[in-house]
Design a protein around this nucleic acid. Structure first.
Lengths: 250, 250
DNA sequence: CCTCTTTATAGTCCGAGTGACTATTAAGGA
DNA sequence: TCCTTAATAGTCACTCGGACTATAAAGAGG
C-alpha cells in the first residue's frame, strides 16, 4: 500500500496541450442479497461529516496499483467479512463524476453492483464503521449521491434478471425453483405464476440443472421440491420479461 | 468546486485512513455513424509516442469543474466540428482503469459511445491531429486498450438496438423505413426480412411516426418510400431481437 | 409505349412462446 | 382421517415472429 505522494504529477509529454488536474478515484458498492423475500442492501453508517449518521454505500479509494475492479473486490471482502469473494457476482455499473458530488474534494467514483447468495452478518469492516443489511425499501436518504447509485444498481440488476442467468447469483449452490422464483419476485416487486415460471426456466437450456439424486428439501409443509444448481448458460433466450411495464427506462 | 490546481490535494478529514493517490481522469469516445451501409468510427491518428502513427479513439482530460459527461460532450463537439451536439446520443459505456493501460502515467478513462445521424467530415480537432471516419471492420490494432473499448461500444450499441429506439439516432430527422432497417443490418451485420421489420416497427407505438403529407422521397429507382420521424418512445416492447445468436454475451 | 427491374407495401400461414387456468401429487398439521 | 400447503403436470387460447407470396409504383432501356 503506497502513501500519498506529496506532489502532483506533472503532465507528461503528449498531455501538455490539456489542462491537467488530479482526481481522487474511488469505488462504491451496491451489494444486494435476498433474505426472507426481502431485498437487502449492505450499508455503512457514516461516523463523521459530511453526512454523519447517514447510511452510505461501502467503498473506498482505488489504490495506485489496483484496477477499479480489483479495488471493488477488495472492498467487498473487507466489508462483508467473507474470506472468499472470488465466486461472487461483481459488475461495473457506471461512473459518477459530478464535480460537487463530494463536498470535500473532487472524487470520481466507479460504482459496482454485487450479488450475494445469502446474507452473512457483516464484519465491522476495515473502517470500524457500522455495516448492516437494510431492506431496499424503507431506506431514508443516503449520503452523497448514493440514492441515485443504488437506484441505478437496482434497475440494472432487475433488467439483467430478464435476459441473463444472474438470478442464480442470489441463490445458494443448491436451490429449489421456488427459491429462484422468489428472487425474481423480490427484485422485481412482482408476483409470478408458478407453473409458467417453472416451464420457462426448465425450457431454457443451461439455466438450471436438476440434481439427479432424490435430493430434496423441505422448508416446512407441502410437497418437497427438487433441488437444482446453476447451469452453464449465461444468457436467456428468449428473455424472461417482467410483467407489463409500458414505459421501461432505457 | 474544488481548487488545488497544481499541487496534490491532501487527503482531507474522513479520508485519512486510506492511502490516497491522485489519478488522471479522461474520457474516450467511440463515435459511430452509418454511411453507405457501412458502420464508421471516428478515429484520430496519434502523432507522438506512445503508439505514434496508430489510430486512437478521440478523447481528453476531464477538466476540474466538469463532469465526465460534460467533458465527453465537449470533446465530441471539438472532434466532430459540429456546432450543436446537444441532440446527439451520448451514453456512458464503462470505465477502464487497468494500472498499465497508459504507459506514461496512471489514467482512468470513462468511455462513452456516441451516435451520429450522418457523417460530416471531421474537423481537425483541438489537437490538430488527423481525425477521420474509418469503417469499423478493417481496423488495424488501435492505440492503448482502445480495441477493447471499441468492441465493448459496438456490443453495447448492438444490444441497445434490440430493446430501445436508439436506431433513430443514426438517422436524419426524416427517414424511410428502409434507411432504418439499413441501420439495424449494418450495426448487427445481418440481413433482415423487410416486411417483417416493417410490421414490427410500425406495431411498436411511439417508435416512428409517419409524416402525414404526401411527403415522399426517392433514392433512385423503385417505388418512393414514406417518410417517418422518430417517435416519443424510448424502449421497445417487446424487443426486436437479433436473429439467432445462441450464446450472447452478457 | 411497353417491358423489365427495383423498391415499397400488403397480406398469408404456421409454429414457438407465454399468460391464464385447472388438476394432481406429496408432504405436515389439526 | 381430513385439511392445508406447496410442488408439479397439463390444457387452452392468443400473440408474436419467421418465412413467404403478391401487389403497387417508380426508373431504365428498348
Amino acid at each position: 500500500m503506497t502513501t500519498a505522494k506529496g506532489n502532483a504529477p506533472e503532465a507528461p509529454e503528449g498531455y501538455d496541450k490539456h489542462a491537467f488536474e488530479p482526481f481522487a478515484v474511488t469505488v462504491d458498492l451496491a451489494v444486494f442479497t435476498v433474505r426472507a423475500a426481502v431485498l437487502q442492501v449492505l450499508l455503512i453508517e457514516r461516523g463523521q461529516e459530511p453526512y454523519a449518521g447517514r447510511w452510505a454505500l461501502p467503498g473506498g479509494f482505488v489504490l495506485p496499483d489496483e484496477s477499479a475492479e480489483t479495488a471493488a473486490r477488495r472492498e467487498l471482502a473487507e466489508e462483508t467479512g467473507l474470506s472468499d469473494v472470488t465466486g461472487l457476482h461483481l459488475e461495473q455499473l457506471r461512473t459518477y463524476s459530478e464535480p460537487d458530488r463530494d463536498p470535500r474534494m473532487r472524487v470520481v467514483s466507479v460504482a459496482y453492483a454485487a450479488l450475494l447468495p445469502d446474507a452473512p452478518e457483516p464484519h465491522g469492516g476495515g473502517d470500524a464503521a457500522r455495516a448492516q443489511w437494510l431492506p431496499y425499501d424503507r431506506l431514508g436518504p443516503l449520503a452523497f449521491d448514493h440514492d441515485r447509485i443504488l437506484a441505478d444498481a437496482h434497475e440494472r440488476v432487475g433488467a439483467k434478471l430478464e435476459y441473463t442467468c444472474l438470478a442464480t447469483a442470489f441463490c445458494p449452490p443448491e436451490f429449489t425453483l421456488g427459491e429462484l422464483q422468489q428472487v425474481y419476485e423480490t427484485v422485481w416487486g412482482t408476483v409470478l405464476d408458478r407453473p409458467n415460471f417453472r416451464r420457462k426456466v426448465l425450457a431454457t437450456p443451461g439455466f438450471v440443472e436438476l440434481i439427479p439424486g432424490a435430493a430434496r428439501l423441505t422448508g416446512g409443509r407441502g410437497k418437497p421440491a427438487a433441488l437444482y444448481r446453476a447451469g452453464a448458460a449465461a444468457a436467456l433466450h428468449p428473455p424472461l420479461l417482467r410483467p407489463s411495464r409500458e414505459g421501461r427506462p432505457i
